[in-house]
């Protein structure tokens, strides 16, 4: 059996409260899995399965993707009605047009309105439109968010400071390995004269997951 169940010192009481290890101030290795990870890396490199350069390049590529990509897509959809239609009907095509191809998954864009508020989760794991938003925040991967957003979305949104009127319908979209979602938030009132770049600067990661709305002043 692979060593999946090492009974090392682990805080069971908080085991699923954090989605990844908090930084350790002493720079020592505290997790058996960190050692296992290094062992995997070394062996896969030695066997020629991956090269160190490939792994480094992959990390750099990930680090360069920020929610600014998604924000650019959203801002374009606010200023260009034809682009918005394209985004809502063939999102993969629309985001590739702005330089953010998503080749391995289907992207679905969902728009918020006065009547409907959309929010995204991956109840089974952590699927997320990484090409547009980067790596998911820890809370998105947390058991609490995944469990509760589908059964009590209004309460969860409230915890994020998003209090919706009762007449607004809340739609929760559960991502899969094959389908990812991008929320197009409502353009805040009073920002009609702003440029596309100025608008993009207002669009936050949380608004594109759907747990927040976009504010007129950042």
């Amino acid at each position: 059996m692979p060593h999946d169940h090492h009974d090392h010192e682990h805080d069971h009481a908080h085991g699923h409260a954090h989605a990844h290890a908090p930084p350790q101030p002493d720079h020592k290795v505290h997790s058996y899995y960190q050692i296992l990870g290094v062992a995997l890396k070394e062996l896969l490199v030695e066997k020629g399965v991956v090269t160190a350069d490939e792994v480094r390049a992959a990390i750099e590529k990930r680090d360069q993707i920020t929610p600014a990509h998604g924000a650019k897509v959203v801002a374009r959809s606010w200023v260009d009605p034809l682009y918005r239609i394209k985004l809502l009907t063939n999102a993969n095509l629309a985001v590739a047009e702005l330089g953010f191809p998503m080749t391995t998954t289907k992207l679905v864009a969902v728009e918020n309105s006065e009547e409907v508020h959309n929010v995204v989760v991956c109840t089974l794991c952590s699927c997320y439109p990484r090409e547009l938003l980067g790596l998911p925040p820890a809370w998105y991967k947390s058991r609490a968010y995944r469990a509760r957003i589908v059964s009590e979305p209004r309460a969860v949104l409230g915890e994020f400071g998003t209090n919706l009127p009762d007449n607004v319908e809340v739609r929760v979209h559960d991502s899969t390995a094959d389908i990812r979602y991008l929320v197009i938030p409502i353009q805040p009132p009073g920002t009609e004269g702003k440029s596309e770049e100025e608008l993009a600067a207002l669009v936050t990661r949380d608004s594109m997951i759907g747990v927040a709305e976009v504010k007129a002043h950042g």
Binding site: P22, K41, I59
Partner: peptide
């Protein structure tokens, strides 16, 4: 499933976590 409050505190991934992601 019933669960408690969502902890929204975030911190950067450590290098070894990024490395697993990269592999």
């Amino acid at each position: 499933l019933p669960e408690g409050p969502i902890e929204t505190e975030t911190h950067d991934l450590s290098f070894w976590e990024k490395q697993i992601d990269g592999i």
